[in-house]
């Protein structure tokens, strides 16, 4: 691939991370099915609180991860993040250690590291889709 193609994808994934990341945070903060999403119950005089509803509620998290739509959003977000992060590292490191075998080694190592993170993340998404948490 030409560097222009690689960098075009870098900028595009940056934008898409913004879009899909926003969905992700909307999911956590606003899109909860429960009106109690930010409700905390203060128990006793020591004011410790217990989460009783909201997007971080276990059953809701499980429901979200089981949804094919949200699962796809997470998988896409993961793909964009892995590309953007590891290519970003490659760019930074190739400037610090330019040229020769070191630069090639950096590219291969980061590619493999990115692949491992992607496979591991996909595994989590797939397990979530199967309701297996």
């Amino acid at each position: 691939m030409r560097e222009s193609q690689i960098m075009f994808l870098q900028y595009m994934t940056g934008l898409l991370i913004l879009v899909f990341g926003s969905f992700h945070f909307l999911l956590i903060s606003v899109l909860s099915p429960s009106p109690q999403k930010v409700l905390y119950i203060y128990s006793g005089i020591n004011a410790s609180h217990i989460l009783v509803g909201g997007t971080l509620y276990y059953t809701w998290v499980k429901a979200v991860y089981s949804s094919l739509i949200w699962g796809s959003v997470f998988e896409l977000l993961l793909t964009f993040l892995v590309y953007h992060v590891f290519n970003g590292f490659r760019v930074i490191l190739s400037e610090i250690i330019p040229g020769g075998r070191a630069e090639k080694a950096i590219t291969y190592i980061l590619f493999i590291a990115g692949l491992i993170v992607f496979i591991w993340g996909t595994r989590t998404v797939v397990i979530g889709l199967g309701g297996g948490f």
């Binding site: 030409r2 560097e3 222009s4 960098m7 760019v91 190739s94 400037e95 330019p98 040229g99 630069e103």
Partner: peptide
């Protein structure tokens, strides 16, 4: 010129 300008140490850095 593309191979030089559009390289790892070219315009994108």
């Amino acid at each position: 010129r593309l191979n030089v300008l559009d390289s790892k140490h070219g315009v994108w850095r």
